[in-house]
Nucleic acid binder design. Structure first.
Lengths: 134, 134
DNA sequence: AGGTGGTTAAGGGAAAGTGTTTAAGTTTAT
DNA sequence: ATAAACTTAAACACTTTCCCTTAACCACCT
């Protein structure tokens, strides 16, 4: 069975980083350029984000598809829309308006720019009213 | 930024599976062989395991210092030493003797020459028994 | 003996990921 | 303003993953 997502190199950099070393210091220790350390660290952070996203998907499997936030939609209007769709199914979203907006933006920062939805976002809901994204 | 670990194909299979379809049925729907569906599903499950492992690593990032391999130590005696130290802390090293020696040498080739430790090497251990170096 | 559901192995072509260098850019702190 | 810390982009060799096919194998079940 395969290891985790992070390469040995990436783990190494993260550990040194955790200790508070600069990229330059790490570069000297592992004998490469600081630019490379930066790249490796960035890749590591991305891999961690991908791991999170992957497990998010599992929740969408348990939940049912609720609706789609269409490209161009005002983010501030999303909660009202989501609440309405949930009510149609007799479900109560377990986030208030503010929390929901935050959750939307936090879950997929690159899919929202300012108040705008940049690309279609699939919304899923579980029986207990938790919200997930596809 | 890239999406999650799972490919579209893998998600597709997982969704059908969740609905209770057999691999044969899915194979017909997505126009391929059941062997392929099996392979894709297996890859998906592996990817999910990798995602979990990756996030596990984050929690163990702040591992504790285990011991120091002192300069001049015979590399072949290192594993026994490390095992003993780990046991003192109630931790089980997740590498057998051979794997551990390889990991030691691979991690920092310049710190070992032949069977000898050239300079002190700090050993760290995480809660899941993974070993890394300072 | 068939039928069904699942798994494995070998192999191939396309695609994606990794580590690296070089070279440029930005932010931040002294 | 200078240096240090950090980020980004492009290009490269190399390795790995992904999806696919074919062919075989195992465990049930009636």
């Amino acid at each position: 069975m395969k290891q985790g997502l992070l390469t040995d190199r990436q783990k190494e950099v993260l550990r040194y980083r955790k200790k508070g070393l600069t990229q330059q210091q790490i570069a000297e220790i592992i004998h490469t350029s600081k630019a490379n350390v930066c790249t490796i660290e960035k890749a590591a952070v991305e891999n961690i984000a991908r791991a999170r996203e992957t497990l998010e998907f599992l929740y969408t499997l348990d939940g049912t598809h609720l609706c789609t936030l269409q490209q161009g939609l005002d983010l501030l209007k999303a909660p009202e829309f989501i609440y309405a769709e949930a009510e149609k199914r007799g479900l109560k979203v377990k986030y208030d308006t503010i929390s929901l907006i935050n959750r939307l933006r936090d879950a997929n920062p690159e899919r929202f720019s300012g108040r705008q939805v940049r690309e279609d976002v699939e919304i899923y809901i579980s029986k207990d009213g938790d919200i997930y994204f596809g």
